[in-house]
Computed example of a mutant assay.
Amino acid sequence: MRKEYSKEEILQYAEANNVRYVRLQFTDLLGIVKNVEIPVDQLPKALNNRMMFDGSSIQGFVRIEESDMYLAPDLSTWLIFPWETPQGKVARLICDVYQPDGTPFPGDPRSVLKRVYARAQDMGFSAFNVGPEPEFFCLNWTRRASRRRT
């Protein structure tokens, strides 16, 4: 179960753990993780959903004329990475993508999932279970000596 953090708690944890940078993460339409990394002094601005980015730089999002987009962090996704970089500790927040008028961006995969989940609830479904299915191949790369024909 995820912990629900408050904005104040996140700011306190960041200071107490000497966090230097925060990655505001989201996914593109193909599910590839993207992020806007900010210095920790910009964290209050991000926590108030005022962090903008250029949506036209994300393949499949919007055209240059519609490029201003906002990131709204999901406070329950606060995580300080367990490793340290040469620049200091890094944390992350997973974000929803919003349009300048404050509406969810229809191409944000998190927004799509929320809409589908709401429709399923309206249809009477009370649970929504998903599970990833990682696939991989194990190959034996040892080289066999070639056979000679005699």
Rank of each mutant, 00 (worst) to 15 (best):
K7Y: 08
E8K: 04
E9A: 12
Q12C: 00
A14Q: 00
A14D: 00
E15N: 09
E15H: 06
N17D: 13
N18F: 08
N18Q: 12
N18C: 02
V19M: 04
V19Y: 06
V22I: 14
R23T: 03
Q25E: 10
Q25S: 13
Q25A: 15
F26V: 02
T27P: 11
T27S: 06
L29Q: 15
V33F: 04
N35G: 08
N35D: 15
V36T: 04
I38K: 14
I38T: 05
V40N: 07
Q42S: 09
Q42W: 03
L43D: 02
K45I: 02
K45D: 10
L47A: 06
N48C: 03
N48A: 04
N49R: 09
F53W: 05
F53M: 03
F53T: 05
F53G: 08
G55D: 11
G55F: 03
S57C: 14
I58S: 08
F61H: 12
V62M: 07
E65A: 14
Y70R: 05
L71K: 01
L71W: 14
A72H: 10
A72P: 01
A72T: 10
L75Y: 06
S76G: 12
W78Y: 07
P82K: 08
P82S: 03
W83T: 10
E84M: 04
P86F: 00
Q87F: 15
Q87W: 15
K89L: 00
K89F: 10
K89A: 03
A91H: 09
A91F: 00
L93N: 00
I94G: 02
V97H: 07
V97I: 12
Y98W: 08
P100I: 01
G102P: 09
P104T: 03
P106T: 03
P106R: 07
G107H: 02
D108I: 03
P109T: 05
P109K: 08
R110H: 14
R110N: 13
K114A: 12
R115E: 13
V116L: 15
Y117L: 15
Y117N: 14
A118C: 06
A120H: 04
G124A: 12
F125R: 06
S126W: 10
F128V: 01
V130W: 15
G131W: 14
P134Q: 10
E135M: 12
E135I: 13
F137C: 00
F137M: 00
T142S: 14
A145Q: 03
A145L: 06
R148P: 01
R148W: 02
R148S: 12
R148H: 09
R149Q: 11
T150Q: 08
